[in-house]
């Protein structure tokens, strides 16, 4: 795989002196779904806006499909579709007209059949002649996606596509993203929702205070940083943790009925077998055992706290 978007040493300082991006470098592979996670004000939107040409970089270099976004802006921008975070639509236009406008703006000849296909794919087919202002919030968001797709981009940026969207629509949106990925579009999305990154991303980038903290394969990331927990339920409460078990750092629930053992799932020895043996030796009767994997959320919160 080759990088379709490449960001090198990107810095963005606003007129007031605020440094929104500090020396960001990032490669986005063709065909992947990359989720950018970060708290409010982390620089997610600035990064996207700078790649798309809405904001001018203070320093650094960005290429899209090998084209420099500053010197070959036409070739670079033609490859990129952007779905902004806020709903910015002309209220008095019809869906069809505003989506066609986007296609024309990107230099593509008019193609009503193609646009109708996109609208159908986004379940907007029956709304094509409706005025934008008569649509619900969720539909407007889909119109924004239709506009971004109207000029057949190879890279699609979704800036918080599911912010303030109900659960059902969020699932719909994930399906749309999956469909786009299947058709070969590279997708970069920013989100607050960790479950969203977990559900649809191939790789996860964490950004905070204008710096990329890490970019990693989602599965690797979770395996590498993920801690596993073993919960042991006892048939009879243990009044205290026996000395023989002290090296396991067990956590005992207040009622004494549950013991929790935290271990590294990727380590060579997890210590589970010996723990279970020692438990038996200590005369504790086990009723049930469960394991839990820590979520991306735990990893994320941990990372952002470290840099705070």
């Amino acid at each position: 795989m080759s990088a379709i978007v490449s960001v090198r040493n990107l810095r963005k300082a606003y007129a007031g002196g605020f440094e929104a991006l500090k020396n960001v470098s990032l490669d986005i592979e063709e065909g992947e779904v990359l989720a950018l996670l970060g708290p409010n004000g982390a620089g997610k939107t600035t990064l996207i806006s700078t790649i798309c040409g809405i904001t001018v970089p203070t320093a650094g270099k960005i290429t899209v499909g090998g084209h420099d976004t500053q010197t070959e802006f036409r070739a670079a921008r033609a490859l990129v579709g952007l779905v902004p975070q806020e709903i910015h639509l002309e209220p008095f236009e019809t869906v069809m007209s505003t989506v066609s406008f986007s296609r024309g703006l990107f230099g593509k000849p008019r193609d009503d059949t193609f646009i109708e296909e996109i609208l159908d794919r986004l379940s907007l087919g029956d709304k094509k002649d409706s005025k934008v202002m008569t649509l619900s919030g969720g539909m407007k968001r889909r119109v924004l996606i239709a506009k971004a797709l109207s000029h057949e981009p190879r890279v699609l940026f979704l800036d918080e596509p599911t912010a303030g969207v109900d659960v059902e629509l969020r699932k719909d949106m994930w399906e749309v993203v999956a469909g786009l990925k299947a058709s070969g579009v590279t997708i970069i999305l920013t989100t607050h929702y960790i479950e969203e990154a977990e559900a649809i991303a191939d790789r996860v980038g964490v950004i905070n205070k204008g710096e990329i903290l890490l970019v990693q394969d989602k599965v690797d990331l979770m395996a590498q940083m993920g801690k596993k927990q073993l919960r042991i339920e006892l048939s009879e409460p243990a009044p205290a943790i026996p000395d023989a078990l002290s090296r396991y750092n067990l956590a005992r629930a207040e009622n004494g009925l549950t013991l929790t053992y935290t271990y590294d799932a990727t380590g060579e020895r997890t210590g589970i077998t010996t723990l279970l043996n020692d438990l038996q030796k200590a005369g504790l009767q086990m009723k049930d055992i469960q394991t839990q994997q820590s979520s991306l959320e735990d990893i994320f919160v941990g990372l952002v706290k470290e840099t705070a």
């Binding site: 798309c52 040409g53 036409r74 806020e86 639509l89």
Partner: peptide
């Protein structure tokens, strides 16, 4: 002014137009 006011100007700025 109108696209600037409602924010739709993002599209003009991100489009391959001079």
């Amino acid at each position: 002014y109108f696209p600037k006011f409602i924010g739709a100007i993002y599209e003009l700025l991100s489009a391959p137009v001079s």
